[in-house]
Amino acid sequence: MEISNKTIEVLKKSGWYEGRKIDISENVKFLEERGFEVLESAKRFMEEFGELKINVEKKRKDGSTKTSKHTTCIKETVGLGNSFNFGLEDYVDEKVMLIGSLYDFNIYLYISESGRIFDSTAWVGDSVWEAFDNIINEKGTIVWGKFKE
């Protein structure tokens, strides 16, 4: 899959770099203390993309700028409450783990055991890179009703 230059640029501005592998032991402990099973796919995601605040600026037709704020800071996201229990298992055929939030904590972001990415409303990508490209470039997602068809 080809990733846009904009996606790479936005991620780099957010603190990501090629070969990034941060210490996630504190976040894993935080999650496990709250009873969450931390998936291996989530650990790999957190090592490379964890603790990022991703701001995506977009010019509106009137010339003003709109900023969409996303985060992969797990303590902030989990700290807002238990966002796991809304029925993702009805749509995804494997375990999922919360990995962040989109649009100022209005939508939660999840990773499956196999590495597919979902949000609270839809499929976002078959890989982390596809998901970030779809999110940052606002390419859209496949909503649940159509995902199951």
Rank of each mutant, 00 (worst) to 15 (best):
residue 129 W to M: 12
residue 119 D to P: 04
residue 135 I to S: 00
residue 91 Y to R: 04
residue 128 V to Y: 12
residue 96 V to L: 05
residue 113 E to L: 04
residue 89 E to N: 14
residue 88 L to D: 00
residue 107 I to W: 08
residue 74 I to F: 01
residue 74 I to H: 00
residue 129 W to L: 01
residue 111 I to F: 04
residue 128 V to E: 14
residue 60 R to T: 06
residue 66 K to Y: 11
residue 81 G to F: 07
residue 95 K to D: 14
residue 122 A to S: 15
residue 79 G to L: 11
residue 104 D to H: 06
residue 91 Y to K: 05
residue 115 G to Q: 00
residue 56 V to P: 05
residue 76 E to K: 15
residue 106 N to L: 03
residue 68 S to Q: 10
residue 116 R to A: 10
residue 79 G to V: 11
residue 96 V to C: 15
residue 130 E to V: 05
residue 129 W to S: 01
residue 81 G to S: 13
residue 63 G to R: 01
residue 62 D to Y: 02
residue 103 Y to N: 14
residue 79 G to N: 12
residue 102 L to T: 09
residue 128 V to A: 12
residue 118 F to P: 00
residue 105 F to Y: 15
residue 132 F to D: 03
residue 126 D to Y: 10
residue 94 E to M: 13
residue 100 G to K: 03
residue 113 E to W: 01
residue 68 S to N: 10
residue 88 L to G: 02
residue 118 F to C: 00
residue 109 L to C: 09
residue 134 N to C: 08
residue 83 S to M: 13
residue 124 V to M: 15
residue 134 N to W: 02
residue 123 W to A: 01
residue 102 L to K: 07
residue 137 N to L: 02
residue 77 T to W: 06
residue 131 A to S: 07
residue 100 G to Q: 05
residue 83 S to T: 13
residue 105 F to W: 09
residue 77 T to D: 11
residue 106 N to M: 05
residue 76 E to D: 15
residue 116 R to I: 00
residue 125 G to S: 10
residue 68 S to C: 05
residue 112 S to P: 02
residue 117 I to Q: 01
residue 131 A to L: 05
residue 132 F to H: 02
residue 130 E to K: 05
residue 108 Y to E: 10
residue 127 S to H: 03
residue 58 K to G: 06
residue 90 D to F: 13
residue 72 T to D: 07
residue 119 D to M: 10
residue 122 A to W: 10
residue 126 D to M: 11
residue 118 F to I: 04
residue 63 G to F: 04
residue 115 G to K: 02
residue 75 K to M: 14
residue 57 E to W: 01
residue 70 H to D: 12
residue 137 N to Q: 04
residue 84 F to I: 11
residue 95 K to S: 12
residue 99 I to F: 01
residue 136 I to K: 02
residue 88 L to I: 04
residue 79 G to Q: 10
residue 112 S to E: 10
residue 88 L to N: 02
residue 54 I to D: 02
residue 101 S to T: 12
residue 95 K to A: 15
residue 137 N to H: 00
residue 82 N to I: 11
residue 55 N to K: 11
residue 105 F to C: 12
residue 54 I to T: 06
residue 92 V to H: 10
residue 91 Y to F: 15
residue 122 A to G: 15
residue 84 F to E: 12
residue 90 D to T: 05
residue 103 Y to L: 03
residue 132 F to R: 02
residue 73 C to F: 14
residue 71 T to N: 08
residue 85 N to R: 14
residue 101 S to D: 14
residue 103 Y to D: 15
residue 73 C to D: 12
residue 63 G to Q: 01
residue 118 F to T: 00
residue 106 N to K: 12
residue 129 W to I: 00
residue 85 N to P: 03
residue 92 V to K: 10
residue 66 K to Q: 06
residue 89 E to V: 08
residue 110 Y to W: 10
residue 116 R to S: 09
residue 128 V to C: 04
residue 125 G to V: 07
residue 109 L to T: 08
